[in-house]
Design a protein around this nucleic acid. Sequence first.
RNA 1: AGCGGGGUGGGGCAGCCUGGUCAGCCCGCCGGGCUCAUAACCCGGAGGUCGGUGGUUCAAAUCCACCCCCCGCUACCA
Length: 559
Amino acid sequence: MASAWPYVYSLPHLGNLIGAPLSADVYARFLRRKGEEVVFVSGSDEHGTPIEAEARRRGIRPRQLTDEMHRKISSLFEAFRISYDNYTRTESPVHVRFVQEFYSKVYENGHIFDEEIEQLYCENCGIFLPDRFVVGTCPYCGNPKAYGDQCEVCGRLLTPLDLIGPRCAFCGSTPVVKKTRHWFFDLPKFSDELRGYIERNENFPENARNMSLAMIREGLKPRSVTRDNEWGIPAPFPGAEGKTIYVWMEAVLGYVSAVKEWAERRGKPELFDEFWKDPHTRSVYFIGKDNIPFHTIIYPALLMASGQGYVLPYNVSSTEFLMYEGQKFSKSKGIGIWMDEALELLEADYWRYYLIATRPETKDSSFAWADFEAKINNELNDVLGNFVHRTLTFTASRFGGEVPALNPSDEEARSAISRAEDLAKRAEDSLWRFRMREALVRVMDIAREGNAFLNSRAPWADLKEGRVERAGSTISAALTLVKGLAHYLEPFLPDTSERLWEMLRLDGSPHETTWDSAFEPLPEGHRIGDPKPLFRKVKKEELIERLREIRAARAQPES
RNA sequence: AGCGGGGUGGGGCAGCCUGGUCAGCCCGCCGGGCUCAUAACCCGGAGGUCGGUGGUUCAAAUCCACCCCCCGCUACCA
């Protein structure tokens, strides 16, 4: 399993989080609970022009910059409980060596050719400028901030030489045209093989399949593999001294190298082949929709071209985009919430709940504070938190904290549990189909079921009238549902699951248990721990205000 | 411009591929119940004819055509 590698130029925001790492984490945890052998990898994508330029601007080495960013991002993923088996980086020596060997093979297999091209060069910065990093006035609409590849105002595609008054995006000086030689991956060669692969792969979501087939239909073009950057992995092709591998063409191979690194670190290098070359391995990738063509076309083509028998993606699960109050996340405009800020406002599970419940599975969705408040308060806190709390406190206060007996002929109690089992089954079906949002609703329905069950049975009324056994049977069943929730919530809300585990005084850990043992009842007489509320309500005004303060405090030392 | 996705009661979504048994779910709103629980929980109700027009069909949210609106992508940003 893999989630897209974040480019460590800036910290990921909540849209990035749900797009790849969090979605992948839910699935990875689910697979582990189902007893599958899972290796879940990702890492920091740290080479390339933007970082090289930023480091130059700050007067530090790129490695210094990415060391810091890698450390920050790693700890943020950890705090959000993203359960990577290996979160590494593209500067990892294993990765660097792997990429060079990989491209040497692709070259030997005859899928690389070189060609001289003309490109804009900034003499002040001393770098060739990717089209995106040339800015100027759009010749069509007069937008003074058009990019060298496209004008965002009128939407027209451009080349840097179309721009009026082209400037280097980093220093503003006028670039010159210069010749340079680059090495290209012969992508069109793989068109037929790719088409067959995509058509045969029934797991690809519709958007990924359609987009990819359309691109093949329109004709694939060779992709350049090299760049004139210093900050990157040296290209291993004869005559390519001084060139580095284009970040994208290199970072995707991290999916492979990260598993190699993981296997070597465990002292079992043979695990690498077991995972990557066994045709039964299912590799699953979680990405945002902007990354689809790379993962369904270029990346599989590279794997094919290496001739090493690496398994092709079993599925590429792509999400649409998360917006922020209806707008695009934008660092420069301060629109959105970033991972580090989120954690200062609330614990990870609040965010995990909301993000999974709002996951843009079939179309763009929007983070909205009003919606956030409603979901946290009414669903997470009231439906889930309260069901657990009322059940546990009732057990504690009326049964001395001991699990009462379930009456075997209590049909109502048994059918409540069996309805919950149905819900769990449906949650599982949704998860197998990568519908995490739907799955979470089904798990929450278990709590809803529990609440309805308690109300209809009114064990408090039974106790008043001396029907202790009936009340006990009700609570026993409710406790079984709570235990089920402790299991089923693990992929979604790992910390909450852990706390429930402790409150129920269960053995082991929710992170090692199995999905299918969820409803095995607690033994009669088992003592539970002290019930504590799982969640608290939030007020959006307060959160927004705190966010403002956090930003203000941060802006100070920076400037 | 091309390509892809989407337009379903006040908000957020599912259903559409495999036409009828689909108008469903969560939230909100209104009314009722309960009091174990963090004024939490439960039950019931009002509210949509499924972007528009035309077509296919005994029958369309579901298929076809055209149109309108929103979003994304267009591959040297990663």
